[in-house]
Design a protein around this nucleic acid. Structure first.
Lengths: 127, 127
DNA sequence: GTCACTGCAAAGGCTTTGCATGTAC
DNA sequence: GTACATGCAAAGCCTTTGCAGTGAC
C-alpha cells in the first residue's frame, strides 16, 4: 500500500482521462463525474488535478484556448489540433528528443519538459 | 500609403513589442503605455492586439501561465522558460521545419503553425 | 457626417482561496 | 481525534462585449 488515498473522485477522474483520446478540460471532467452520479464541482476537480499533477500522473496542456486541458502522462507525444473542426490527433513518432539534446548542449540549459502543438487543417477538412 | 491607421496606441505597442526581448502580456503593455503618458486601458490593448494579430504583425503565445503573451512576428523560433527565475531565451536554430514536413506527409494533414516551448533550468540557476 | 479608434462599465469564463463539513484511518 | 478530501461561496484574473464618446477624413 502506498500513501495515496484513492477516493471516488480521483479514481473516476483517472478513469475518464485514461479513456479519453485527447486532453480534456475541467468542465468535461465535471460532466463525466455527474453522469456517473458523483456529486462534485469544479473546485474539487481543480484540486484533484493539482494532486495528480504533483504525483506526476497527468500532464497539463494548452491549446491556445485560454484554459488548461489534462491528460494521462504518457511517453513523449504531441498534438495536432484542427483549426476547422477542433479534432485532436496525437503526434507520437516525432523525434524531438534529438533536438532537445542538441539545444541543451548548445545553450547550457537543462530542459525538463516541453510543449509542442501543431495547428492546421486535418485530412477530412481538406476535402 | 496603406489603409492601416497608425494611432499612438498602436504605434507605441509595436514599439514596445519590438524592443522587448521576450513575449509580453497585456499588463506589461498597459504599464508601458502609461509610462509614456498615454491614457489607456486593457480593453484597448486587447483590441489593438486583435488588430495586430489579424494583420499578421504579431504572434500570440502561451507559457502555461493561464494568460497570453504577444511578440512581434519573426522567423520560426521558440522559447525556453526557466522554471526558477522565469527568464525567457529564444531558441532559434531549432530545425523543426523538417519534422513539420515529415508529419504533414505521414498524416495527410496541413500544418499552418505550431507552438514549441521548452521549460527547465537556465544556465545561471544551475550554479 | 461617417467611420474607425478608444474608454468605461459590465459581464463571462477560468482558476484560486477561505472556511466549513464530511470521511477514512 | 487527526488528517485529509470535498463542497459552497466568494474573490481574483484574464478576456470579451455593449455602448457611448472622440477624432480623423
Amino acid at each position: 500500500m502506498n500513501s495515496i488515498s484513492r477516493t471516488p473522485a480521483r479514481a473516476t477522474i483517472v478513469e475518464f482521462l485514461s479513456k479519453s483520446y485527447s486532453p480534456v478540460d475541467v468542465s468535461q471532467i465535471v460532466n463525466f463525474l455527474r453522469a456517473k452520479n458523483l456529486s462534485t464541482n469544479k473546485v474539487t476537480v481543480y484540486r484533484v488535478m493539482d494532486f495528480l499533477l504533483e504525483k506526476g500522473f497527468i500532464d497539463k496542456v494548452e491549446f491556445r484556448e485560454g484554459k488548461f486541458r489534462y491528460e494521462i502522462k504518457r511517453d513523449d507525444h504531441h498534438h495536432f489540433i484542427c483549426q476547422n473542426c477542433d479534432v485532436v490527433e496525437d503526434i507520437s513518432d516525432c523525434n524531438i528528443s534529438v533536438l532537445v539534446e542538441e539545444i541543451q548542449k548548445k545553450k547550457g540549459i537543462l530542459i525538463k519538459k516541453h510543449s509542442l502543438e501543431f495547428f492546421g487543417i486535418c485530412k477530412n477538412c481538406q476535402l
